[in-house]
Amino acid sequence: MHVLITGAGGHLGRKLFDALESDPGYIVSGIDIRPVDHPDIHTADLSDDSSWVSLLKGVDVIVHLAGDREPAATWASAIKHNMDATLSLYHHAAAMGVSRVVLASSNWVHGDKRFTHDVLNSTTPPGPVNACGMSKLFCERTGAYFAAHHGLSVICLRIGWTQWTHDNQPGPHMAMGRWGQEMWLSDRDFLNGMRAAIDAKDVPFAALNLMSDNPGMRWDINETRQVIDYTPQDGSAAKITPTIRLKSALKRLFSHKFARHLESRYPDW
């Protein structure tokens, strides 16, 4: 199976590229916006031109990890690197006969649920609170369109937190308190989840959570297990310190007060 990874030089992309490259069951190539010192990782900007389209010839599955994943991404960046690039990728993938796109979506699709008790799964109404989350929701919905009308299988994985630091070990050092810790995703589970999405049979479209099996988390991974046969190997319960508890209470209070302010000032909001 020929797998092409976009963002192949990035934090997650290179981990996946190296893992698949060492597996005789795959042929792997890549695209990255920056030059990467590897002969099979090509330099291209997916949102700017179509010089990269020829690289899709003979590709079975695209794992689309390229884009701006930062919570503080500007609208200009989110539109260019997430929305425009992904729409172009879907279009050319369908035209070139690619069977599937595995999209790196984001837990920020449910950003408004941080201080609620909602269970988070594919049926939970989305509520992005930043440009990153909104752009990833757009990528999910356009993926559903291409699946329905162009026969392109699209699996959107709302990827949890794989840290750049601390050897990606979970704990109270992680930002965003309980919310941050509960979305932890180990390197091993990230690679297992990606392989499961690449290899899954008969999945026209799905939007699934990809976290480790963290006790007490609100992200539901049962659907991920069922649809793509994801089998997480790791998990860690959140460790809530007094500082985390205080910060969470203050942010929850601010969030509720701000919402009430908007409702009083803009009744139709």
Rank of each mutant, 00 (worst) to 15 (best):
residue 66 A to S: 15
residue 246 L to E: 10
residue 269 W to L: 11
residue 168 N to I: 01
residue 95 A to V: 11
residue 71 P to V: 03
residue 46 L to R: 00
residue 157 L to A: 04
residue 192 N to P: 07
residue 17 F to V: 02
residue 165 T to E: 15
residue 112 D to A: 15
residue 19 A to Q: 12
residue 191 L to V: 13
residue 173 H to I: 02
residue 33 I to Q: 02
residue 221 I to L: 07
residue 183 M to V: 12
residue 258 F to Q: 00
residue 57 K to L: 10
residue 104 A to R: 09
residue 14 R to W: 11
residue 149 H to S: 04
residue 32 D to T: 09
residue 1 M to L: 00
residue 175 A to Q: 03
residue 144 A to E: 09
residue 192 N to L: 15
residue 139 C to Y: 03
residue 92 H to A: 06
residue 54 S to W: 01
residue 46 L to F: 04
residue 112 D to N: 14
residue 224 T to E: 14
residue 115 F to W: 14
residue 18 D to T: 11
residue 105 S to L: 10
residue 165 T to R: 10
residue 49 D to V: 03
residue 268 D to V: 08
residue 202 D to C: 10
residue 70 E to I: 08
residue 189 D to P: 12
residue 203 V to E: 04
residue 131 A to Y: 14
residue 28 V to I: 14
residue 87 L to I: 05
residue 90 Y to W: 12
residue 191 L to H: 11
residue 115 F to P: 09
residue 125 P to M: 02
residue 49 D to T: 01
residue 18 D to R: 12
residue 243 T to F: 15
residue 60 D to H: 08
residue 184 W to R: 11
residue 237 A to M: 04
residue 141 R to H: 05
residue 29 S to Q: 07
residue 198 I to P: 04
residue 66 A to F: 12
residue 243 T to D: 14
residue 19 A to E: 13
residue 203 V to H: 02
residue 50 S to K: 09
residue 94 A to N: 01
residue 9 G to V: 05
residue 225 R to W: 02
residue 11 H to S: 10
residue 109 V to I: 06
residue 215 P to K: 11
residue 215 P to G: 09
residue 83 M to L: 06
residue 134 M to K: 02
residue 81 H to C: 01
residue 222 N to L: 14
residue 238 A to L: 13
residue 235 G to T: 10
residue 210 L to P: 10
residue 129 V to P: 04
residue 1 M to T: 02
residue 234 D to A: 12
residue 15 K to P: 13
residue 200 A to W: 15
residue 53 V to I: 15
residue 198 I to L: 02
residue 49 D to F: 07
residue 183 M to I: 11
residue 211 M to G: 03
residue 146 F to P: 06
residue 17 F to Y: 07
residue 200 A to T: 13
residue 123 T to I: 05
residue 90 Y to K: 08
residue 17 F to C: 02
residue 60 D to N: 09
residue 65 L to M: 14
residue 204 P to L: 12
residue 85 A to Q: 03
residue 106 S to I: 14
residue 208 L to H: 13
residue 259 A to P: 04
residue 131 A to D: 10
residue 158 R to M: 11
residue 149 H to I: 01
residue 201 K to R: 04
residue 76 A to G: 06
residue 180 G to L: 10
residue 243 T to R: 14
residue 121 N to T: 12
residue 218 R to C: 15
residue 205 F to Q: 08
residue 79 I to H: 07
residue 47 S to G: 14
residue 78 A to D: 05
residue 236 S to N: 15
residue 5 I to W: 06
residue 209 N to D: 11
residue 88 S to D: 15
residue 65 L to Q: 14
residue 20 L to A: 01
residue 42 H to Y: 15
residue 46 L to K: 00
residue 96 M to L: 06
residue 27 I to H: 07
residue 3 V to Q: 00
residue 51 S to V: 01
residue 224 T to R: 10
residue 139 C to H: 00
residue 174 M to R: 09
residue 246 L to N: 06
residue 179 W to C: 02
residue 91 H to T: 13
residue 163 Q to S: 07
residue 78 A to M: 03
residue 119 V to W: 15
residue 250 L to I: 07
residue 14 R to K: 09
residue 238 A to Q: 12
residue 69 R to W: 09
residue 260 R to C: 02
residue 129 V to E: 09
residue 4 L to F: 01
residue 96 M to A: 07
residue 252 R to F: 09
residue 205 F to C: 09
residue 195 R to F: 05
residue 135 S to N: 01
residue 206 A to L: 08
residue 255 S to W: 03
residue 61 V to S: 03
residue 265 R to M: 11
residue 10 G to Q: 10
residue 123 T to L: 07
residue 64 H to V: 08
residue 120 L to N: 13
residue 97 G to R: 06
residue 185 L to R: 07
residue 212 S to H: 15
